[in-house]
């Protein structure tokens, strides 16, 4: 693909992405074509020597791609764009001018890990950010997921719920819904352990359900017993686990000791 053709496609992409309501469908087809072009010119992944402008354009295209995947709600595609972008963010960080989209995208990636409950990956990613730890708190794009994670771990679920509206970028909201699903399940499992029964109304507030019908659906999914007359939810207790003495294991261990002692004596 000729260079000028690539350029016109890129301008087209910028226009359709930035103009008013983005034309998502058109962006998709353009992105596919552009990626082919990038691969042919050796910019994806970047190989050999390239001039700065080309690299910046390639990074731009990938960043738009990442945002586009979120807007079309395609998380695996976001994952792919992000791994391609990491090349630019880490290996070329000393040459390229910093991108203003870098931190929103990194933040989005963090939230994605959080919603998929990949806490270990979340922390590894956080650790490898090229920022000193106190700068993370000052960066709104990163502070948001970091705070969410802390509240989730503490159990301050209401703070998470309230932070829903404070997303620093439009794209963050996409993850909020699935995050709420995660939270509800967390709360539900806590309630099962911590309460014997709850009034329906309170259960709905605790689980952030605006309507009772939604609560009833949810209760059915988790197998809770709803008592409509008394207006309470009763949680099924898991029967006290019987502690059994692991006989076979103990015997095997003792035999092993006997053998070892025999060797020593």
């Amino acid at each position: 693909m000729a260079a000028h053709q690539l350029k016109s496609l890129y301008e087209d992409l910028q226009r359709s992405f930035n103009g008013g309501p983005s034309d998502l469908k058109r962006c998709g087809t353009l992105l596919a074509q552009l990626k082919m072009g990038l691969i042919e010119t050796g910019l994806l992944p970047p190989r050999g020597e390239h001039n700065l402008d080309d690299l910046v354009v390639a990074r731009d295209i990938l960043e738009i791609g990442a945002f586009w995947s979120i807007r079309t709600q395609d998380v695996p595609s976001f994952d792919r764009y992000f791994s391609q972008l990491q090349n630019f963010y880490t290996d070329y960080s000393s040459i390229l001018p910093p991108s203003k989209r870098e931190y929103p995208i990194r933040g989005l990636n963090l939230i994605r890990l959080l919603t998929q409950n990949r806490i270990a990956d979340f922390h590894t990613t956080l650790e490898s950010l090229p920022l000193p730890a106190d700068a993370i708190a000052d960066n709104p794009y990163l502070a948001h997921p970091v705070n969410l994670e802390r509240w989730l771990m503490e159990g301050s679920y209401s703070k998470v719920w309230n932070a829903r509206e404070e997303a620093p970028a439009e794209e963050y909201k996409f993850f909020v819904d699935s995050l709420m699903g995660t939270i509800r399940n967390e709360i539900a499992s806590c309630e099962e352990a911590a309460y014997e029964s709850l009034p329906l109304k309170d259960a709905a507030t605790l689980l952030f359900f605006p309507k009772q019908s939604e609560l009833l659906n949810f209760a059915q999914q988790r197998g809770w017993q709803v008592n409509p007359t008394a207006g309470t939810v009763t949680f099924v207790k898991k029967g006290e686990e019987k502690i059994e003495i692991p006989k076979e294991k103990l015997i095997a261990a003792n035999l092993a000791y006997a053998r070892e002692l025999e060797q020593i004596v």
């Binding site: 159990g155 679920y157 703070k159 806590c190 352990a193 309170d202």
Partner: peptide
């Protein structure tokens, strides 16, 4: 807030940090 406290205690019970229950 008290609301937070309730969630936090609930989580602590579930995680096995303490034994007990919340009477809402």
């Amino acid at each position: 807030s008290e609301e937070d406290a309730e969630y936090i205690v609930g989580k602590a019970i579930r995680d096995g940090v303490i034994e007990g229950r919340v009477v809402h």
